[in-house]
Amino acid sequence: MSQDPGGELVEGLDKMEDLSIDQFDSPIEAGSEIGKEHGDYFNILGLPTELISHVFSFMSMEDRFRARVNKRLDAIELKSNYKVESVLIEEVEEVPIEVKEWMMEMKDAVDEEDGEEKKEELKFLLVRRFSIAKFSI
């Protein structure tokens, strides 16, 4: 036990040594068995939603995704926010056919407009609409 050097607190702490866990008026071990009604496992669904969310807040995003092992935990995670330092959008090898068709339409429009600025705008639109980070026009 740490002791404060002098003063009221030391006296208080000294007294407190006599006031801690063994001062129950009734025998502790003869009392209730902790959580007996829940069986021999951690009854996570017995916790209120905010406590489950609190537990999940100490887990990585990967673990939180995997922890959606039933409907209630999935629903809790759906309402959770994730804060990440960065997002890496991987380069797409195969552009989906519907995207290709849309790109061709846009390309024709860009060719008609004939300008590099339009191409940059098109790239931006593609990134936002289809999460494609890199492609060629």
């Binding site: 496992y41 100490f58 990585s60 995997r66 922890a67």
Partner: peptide, 20 residues
């Protein structure tokens, strides 16, 4: 509690928490 399920697979988590 988080440490008990961190790094576990879905099936392992389900077993630890005994969830159907």
């Amino acid at each position: 509690l988080a440490n008990k399920i961190n790094g576990k697979t879905v099936e392992e988590m389900r077993e630890i928490l005994q969830l159907e």
